[in-house]
């Protein structure tokens, strides 16, 4: 142990060191902790948060400051909300947000419902080839969207869905269902068999078992699948770019790029304001469910 009694940083820590965390003793002195914990954390934070800082900074810089190279680029002298104002009043931004929301929520719901049923059937219902089906679904996940969008475009055209939100609502599940199904399969597997057998004897049908036993126990798993699906829909770019052409049907990621860039003129202020506002809903979703998200990635059903 490297601690010395009375050291301010180790005062409460010596008590901790006596329990089962002895392998972490080297973290107990402040200088060591600085080097091994805080410094790497700081580096991570800077790398992760810098784009957001830059985005926020640019969105509040007046145009003069944006083009004036003599000023400090890391700071803003005279912040303005003009870009936000322009974005909300002079463009269709609220409509784009609405489109994105409708598409993301619908596609997510659709995918989760399909994934829950697929995963439950694969994991719990005995039929020949269930493993095989599970494997195939995962293989589907490995096909990159950038290849899939060409055949999908043909399908979208033939069903007459081009340039409508349905084009996205119905194609996003092709990316979402495989992953969600796999995530939920893992989660369903962690629910003890006996619970379902007991419910079966208690007189529940398959459907009742799913809705009254399995789903309530899988809430964390469903939430993390939902967050994953929602985030992916929200940020999706290539399908939205290809399948939507009119401005009033566009989603935020595509609209910000195509409507706020005129030729070679980048309206950096509104562009960044749009990007920042666009990431707010995802942040809100995450902040509400982060605990469920983590627990479903790390733990299982505990009786």
């Amino acid at each position: 142990m490297t601690t010395s009694p009375g050291h301010p940083a180790t005062g409460p820590a010596t008590g901790v060191a006596r329990d089962d965390s002895e392998g972490m003793d080297y973290l107990m002195s402040l200088p060591r902790r600085t080097v091994t914990v805080y410094l790497p954390l700081l580096c991570f934070l800077i790398v992760l948060l810098f784009p957001f800082y830059w985005m926020g900074l640019t969105s509040v810089k007046p145009n003069e400051e944006l083009i004036d190279r003599s000023l400090n680029p890391w700071w803003v002298v005279d912040p303005t909300i003009a870009h936000y104002f322009h974005l909300i009043v002079n463009t269709d931004y609220p409509l784009w947000m609405w489109n994105t929301m409708v598409v993301a929520v619908s596609a997510t719901l659709l995918s989760i419902v399909a994934s829950v049923m697929a995963a439950y059937a694969i994991v719990r219902i005995r039929y020949s080839g269930s493993r095989w089906v599970g494997g195939m679904i995962f293989m589907a996940y490995l096909v990159p969207p950038s290849i899939l969008f060409i055949p999908l475009a043909l399908v979208v055209f033939q069903y007459g869905l081009f340039d409508s939100p349905m084009a996205l609502i119905l194609t996003y599940p092709t990316i979402l269902i495989p992953f969600s199904t796999w995530l939920l399969m893992g989660y369903f597997k962690s629910i003890p068999y006996e619970l379902e057998e007991c419910a079966l004897i208690d007189g529940a049908s398959r459907w009742q078992i799913l809705t009254r036993i399995v789903l309530p126990l899988s809430v964390p798993g469903i939430i993390s699948a939902g967050i994953f699906a929602f985030t992916l829909c929200w940020n999706e770019f290539i399908y939205a770019l290809v399948f939507i052409s009119s401005s009033e049907n566009k989603t935020v990621p595509v609209a910000v790029l195509s409507e706020l860039v005129e030729g070679d003129i980048y309206h950096w202020g509104p562009l960044m304001a749009g990007a920042l506002l666009g990431s707010v809903p995802v942040c809100i979703v995450y902040s509400f469910f982060v605990e469920h998200y983590v627990s479903s990635m790390t733990g299982a059903v505990k009786e």
Partner: peptide
């Protein structure tokens, strides 16, 4: 019939 399981199989929720 009613069955009592080894791990009790109580519905945790």
């Amino acid at each position: 019939v009613a069955m009592v399981f080894q791990n009790y199989a109580l519905y945790p929720h």
